[in-house]
Design a binder for these strands. Sequence first.
DNA 1: ATCAACCGTGGAGTTTAGTCCATGCTTTAC
DNA 2: GTAAAGCATGGACTAAACTCCACGGTTGAT
Lengths: 133, 133
Amino acid sequence: MLIGQLAQRTGLSRDTIRFYEKQGLIKVGRRERRVNNYKEYSEAVLKRLLLLNKIKSYGFTLNESAEIISLLEADLGTCNQISKAADKKVAVIDKKVKELLDLRNSLLKIITDCKKGCSSPNLEDNCPLFVLE
Amino acid sequence: MLIGQLAQRTGLSRDTIRFYEKQGLIKVGRRERRVNNYKEYSEAVLKRLLLLNKIKSYGFTLNESAEIISLLEADLGTCNQISKAADKKVAVIDKKVKELLDLRNSLLKIITDCKKGCSSPNLEDNCPLFVLE
DNA sequence: ATCAACCGTGGAGTTTAGTCCATGCTTTAC
DNA sequence: GTAAAGCATGGACTAAACTCCACGGTTGAT
């Protein structure tokens, strides 16, 4: 199929597909061209892209996704390997969540402090925060 | 003071200070130069940088921080304004946290599914996930 | 014949917040 | 007198994952 159809079937834009190609995430052999030089994409490429999307949707980066696919293709994507990769991601996510929640608390505190510091309920006063002592 | 001292007192690198200058976050008048062309930074600039850092530490971007400072300087940084900006940030954070937690659940699910799908406890089998049906 | 819609390539731009480099002048210390 | 350290300027580079653009060839419909 041509790139337009590939785009439709994967939900990716042509530009994205071409970008993935530039990145080496998918390959089209130099022989897989039509006479007019249009690229002919195989079902295998379609599958690879769908898989890439699926893995990516779990929060893996493009490169990580490609690595996982390589493992699978080399029959090395064992349960241990995959689980370990996912575990690592979970740890990263947990860290991010913690940071965000800390930030959230700080923000909530400045909101209450700001309102509290306003000369009583006149919320049109300047916020006493964000002023260096 | 010169940039080196300013860097020391703010904890920012010279490069960062120069970058902020390029971005227009701080300004040094063309007249505020020593005879040798070295820039002379005022205490006001120092304060502005410290304030910028403080606001930034609450998760605001550089530009947002600069905007908040502008409000404060124009005596418009009212409790309402500041609280509203913080509220907005909180909402953004909440959204991100939710996304991350959803992702976390998906990952946990693929871990258990992967292990469950392994031909029983042989974790060296290929993970049955990440395979298109 | 011509217009839209599609294809190819190469390269630039986007975002954020800087970092690093080259070049060249100034000042300070030994 | 010379080396190190500090200053100024302008511009390139970084990550991530695209998106957009220009230019040009091809195909299909009218």
